[in-house]
């Protein structure tokens, strides 16, 4: 080690405000811990005994499955609606606008309750030629049935399917807005360059615009996924039984001890959302690759680190 300069010695900046804040937080935390330990209404051991029963674990499975499926269909449909919103075709634009308007205006809870009771509207669902009986009458045939497939609504539209449809339709409206904002954030020069190379609109969207828009789309989509995981608790109004909150509430009402089971639900959602947050972090990093702002962010984080703070 020849010629290595001595590290600079200086008195670091003092932060008295931080110590005051720490003191306040310690006191508040102590009070909260005291409450948790001394108040019998928590029924801790009862809660832990009932938090991991096979039925509850199946509920957790159902909740996760529902979140994945609803987000999958919601994102796919949302991308379609966003592309329609930005299409040169005025009919598509209009349909997409009406779609987002309706599904953003109707509350999720109300939508789910509606879908859960669809069998009142149509006890039977069938797929085939529309208005077949009317067409039959025109040609003098009574009871013309041109149907490929028929079934009882109750059997086809189980609680799970009805809930999935409701959540996916509603999610698609929000995802459409997110995707649209992402696509519009891309420099028009990108689309122009791709077009000039002879790429078609669909290729340009898929290969050039959407991958870049991902950087803008991913963070809010992460938030949407987290919100979706929590909104699966609304499925209790469809009702969907294979779901966490339904199962925990059921234990609560059966035992007349609802409060500990609500605490259990909070803990379960806290744990599941924490896993999602970690996943979101890595996704964001992947989609920021090759981007100037990402490099700037890394540099800034370095500077902030030197100054003893975080970004």
């Amino acid at each position: 080690m020849t010629g290595q300069p001595e590290p600079l010695k200086a008195v670091p900046v003092r932060h008295p405000g931080r110590w005051v804040a720490v003191a306040v937080i310690v006191v508040l935390a102590a009070m909260f811990a005291h409450l948790l330990l001394t108040n019998d209404a928590f029924h801790w051991s009862f809660m832990f005994r009932n938090m991991f029963t096979p039925a509850v674990l199946r509920g957790v499975q159902g909740t996760l499955l529902m979140t994945v499926l609803a987000m999958f269909f919601g994102i796919a449909l949302g991308i379609g609606v966003a592309i329609a919103r930005l299409s040169p075709n005025p009919v598509l634009r209009g349909v997409a606008w009406v779609y987002t308007w309706v599904f953003r205006a109707v509350p999720r809870l109300v939508l789910l309750a509606l879908l859960g009771n669809l069998n009142i509207l149509w006890p039977q669902i069938s797929f085939g030629v529309p208005f077949d009986t009317y067409i039959g009458k025109i040609f003098g045939i009574t009871d013309l049935h041109l149907r490929v497939f028929e079934g009882q609504t109750r059997n086809l539209l189980t609680g799970f399917v009805a809930g999935l449809i409701g959540l996916a339709l509603s999610e698609a409206a929000y995802m459409a807005e997110i995707v649209r904002a992402g696509m519009q954030s891309i420099d028009p020069g990108q689309e122009e360059a791709a077009t000039a190379l002879g790429m078609r609109r669909s290729q340009t969207l898929r290969r050039i615009v959407l991958p870049q828009a991902m950087r803008v789309i991913i963070p809010p989509t992460g938030n949407e996924t987290i919100a979706m995981l929590k909104d699966t608790s609304l499925l209790i109004y469809v009702p969907v039984t294979a779901e966490l909150f339904f199962q925990l509430s059921a234990v609560g009402s059966r035992t007349f001890l609802p409060f500990p089971m609500y605490v259990a639900a909070s803990l379960w959602y806290l744990a599941m959302v924490s896993v999602l947050l970690v996943g979101q972090h890595f996704l964001e990093r992947y989609f920021a690759r090759g981007h100037r702002t990402e490099q700037a962010r890394i540099r800034l984080a370095g500077i902030a680190g030197e100054q003893g703070g975080t970004l």
């Binding site: 020069g189 870049q212 981007h291």
Partner: peptide, 9 residues
């Protein structure tokens, strides 16, 4: 183009 318009990703 004047501003290159390379695909940054």
């Amino acid at each position: 183009f004047q501003r290159f318009n390379l695909f940054p990703h």
